[in-house]
Amino acid sequence: MSIQHFRVALIPFFAAFCLPVFAHPETLVKVKDAEDQLGARVGYIELDLNSGKILESFRPEERFPMMSTFKVLLCGAVLSRVDAGQEQLGRRIHYSQNDLVEYSPVTEKHLTDGMTVRELCSAAITMSDNTAANLLLTTIGGPKELTAFLHNMGDHVTRLDRWEPELNEAIPNDERDTTMPAAMATTLRKLLTGELLTLASRQQLIDWMEADKVAGPLLRSALPAGWFIADKSGAGERGSRGIIAALGPDGKPSRIVVIYTTGSQATMDERNRQIAEIGASLIKHW
């Protein structure tokens, strides 16, 4: 067993022997301040990774656009098919120029040779490549099948209805392509620590998230040296922004954090800054 596999296998073990965790309302004060600064709703939840206990939450059962955070769930569904012998990570998928959609920095470079399922998941999570996500959605049967996968996990809230990039439209009061912070946090925890996926697939999923290259201005910008984070960000229309993450000190994750916002007129930089400040408060009061 590799060191990384050992780390993920012992996530519940280490967490069980940690000192009790206590909620700190100071972080919620910052979440509410972010709402004021952005002029928009902000949803927040913080779960203990081992027990699933909610440590703090704000608007945990209000719907927010998922945006690209759905790509972690998508690759979880792909990995479940791999575990069941219905898919192979090494299978190569070929596609054409007509398949390319807006923001496809990886797939646009491989029109000639195609990409493997493993490479597509890596591109979808680490670079948020939209064509990679659409190609992977095709392998599982489309958005409705991802929703069905989530329902089978016990998540009857999260739903995907459309493809990239239309799913980022974020129309107010439109339930399409949305989740709730509580539902997303619980589902992410199941994917990373539950028995739904094999140990190898859980490790692969967290490795992809740990290698995320496009979430630097968010929670990662607030992390002290030595902290662990595996995350996936999302951005959408109407001032929408979000991030889902597993993080913790001492090089291992111990909490799940989900943050979503929508309806702001603020710039992307300002949305990023507010999420980073929430992260800084979380870490300060850990």
Results as ranks from 00 to 15, higher is better:
Thr69Gly: 12
Gly142Ile: 02
Ser233Ile: 01
Ile278Asp: 00
Ser281Asp: 12
Phe58Glu: 07
Val214Trp: 12
Gly154Val: 06
Gln97Gly: 09
Ala215Gln: 06
Ile275Ala: 08
Asp33Phe: 03
Asn50Pro: 06
Gly39Pro: 05
Thr69Gln: 02
Thr262Gln: 09
Leu167Arg: 01
Phe228Val: 15
Gln88Gly: 10
Arg271His: 15
Ala225Pro: 09
Ile45His: 11
Leu74Thr: 07
Leu197Thr: 10
Pro60Ala: 10
Cys121Lys: 00
Cys121Thr: 07
Leu111Glu: 09
Gly85Val: 06
Glu195Met: 15
Arg176Ser: 08
Lys71Gly: 00
Thr147Ile: 09
Ala215Ile: 03
Gly242Gln: 11
Ser281Arg: 07
Glu87Ala: 15
Asp36Tyr: 03
Gln274Trp: 09
Asn134Thr: 10
Leu28Glu: 05
Pro105Tyr: 05
Val82Ser: 08
Arg176Glu: 11
Ser254Pro: 06
Ile259Trp: 03
Arg255His: 09
Ala225Trp: 14
Glu169Val: 03
Leu89Trp: 08
Leu205Val: 04
Asp250Met: 02
Met180Gly: 03
Ile244Pro: 00
Arg92Tyr: 14
Lys232Trp: 00
Lys109Asp: 05
Thr158Ile: 05
Arg241Asn: 13
Asp113Phe: 04
Arg81His: 05
Pro249Ala: 10
Leu74Arg: 00
Glu270Asp: 05
Leu120Cys: 06
Ser254Gly: 04
Asp113His: 02
Leu205His: 01
Leu28Thr: 09
Glu145His: 12
Lys252Met: 14
Thr193Trp: 04
Arg92Ser: 07
Ala276Pro: 02
Arg91Lys: 13
Leu135Ala: 07
His24Asp: 08
Ile45Gly: 07
Gly263Ser: 13
Leu219Val: 05
His285Thr: 06
Asn130Phe: 00
Tyr95Gln: 14
Gly216Met: 12
Leu111Tyr: 08
Gln274Met: 11
Leu219Pro: 06
Ala276Leu: 14
Leu73Asp: 05
Ile275Tyr: 09
Gly52Pro: 09
Ala148His: 07
Ala211Asn: 03
Ala215Leu: 06
Val72Ile: 02
Asp231Ala: 08
Glu35Phe: 14
Ala133Phe: 07
His285Trp: 10
Gln97Pro: 08
Arg241Leu: 13
Lys53Phe: 11
Ser51Trp: 06
Gly236Val: 12
Ala235Met: 12
Ser57Leu: 07
Arg273Ala: 07
His285Pro: 04
Pro165Phe: 13
Asn130Gly: 15
Glu35Val: 11
Leu38Lys: 13
Ala84Phe: 07
Val157Gly: 15
Arg271Ala: 15
Met180Glu: 03
Arg273Thr: 08
Thr187Gly: 14
Arg176Asn: 12
Asn152Leu: 12
Pro253Asn: 07
Glu35Lys: 07
Arg273Trp: 06
Gln204Asn: 09
Pro253Phe: 04
Pro172Trp: 11
Lys32Ala: 14
Asp161Trp: 02
Ile54Gly: 06
Leu219Phe: 06
Gln86Val: 10
Gly141Cys: 08
Arg255Cys: 10
Gly234Lys: 00
Ser57Ile: 04
Arg202Met: 09
Ser233Glu: 01
Thr116Asp: 12
Leu188Arg: 00
Cys121Leu: 03
Ile206Leu: 13
Ala124Tyr: 00
Thr107Leu: 10
Arg59His: 15
Leu160Gln: 08
Thr131Phe: 04
Gly242Glu: 01
Gln265Phe: 04
Ile243Arg: 01
Ala84Gly: 09
Leu197Arg: 15
Ile206Tyr: 15
Tyr95Ser: 07
Arg241Val: 12
Leu74Pro: 01
Cys75Gly: 08
Pro217Val: 10
Pro65Gln: 04
Glu164Gln: 00
Cys121Ile: 13
Asn272Ile: 09
Gln88Cys: 02
Glu102Tyr: 11
Val106Trp: 15
Gln203Cys: 02
Leu282Pro: 01
Ser80His: 15
Trp286Asp: 02
Arg81Asp: 05
Val214Arg: 11
Ala170Met: 07
Gly279Ser: 05
Pro105Thr: 06
Lys232Asp: 00
Lys32Leu: 13
Met180Ser: 06
Gly114Phe: 03
Glu270Ala: 07
Ile259Pro: 00
Val31Ile: 12
Met209Lys: 01
Gly142Ala: 04
Gly43Arg: 00
Asn173Lys: 08
Leu111Thr: 03
Ala266Val: 07
Thr262Trp: 08
Val157His: 13
Val257Ala: 14
Leu74His: 01
Met209Pro: 00
Asp177Ala: 02
Glu35Tyr: 07
Thr178Cys: 07
Ser51Met: 10
Asn98Glu: 09
Gly141Gln: 05
Glu210Arg: 13
Leu282Cys: 03
Ala148Asn: 11
Ala185Arg: 00
Arg271Asn: 11
Ala211Gly: 14
Asp212Glu: 08
Gln265Ile: 12
Glu277Pro: 07
Glu108Trp: 15
Val258Ala: 02
Arg189Gly: 05
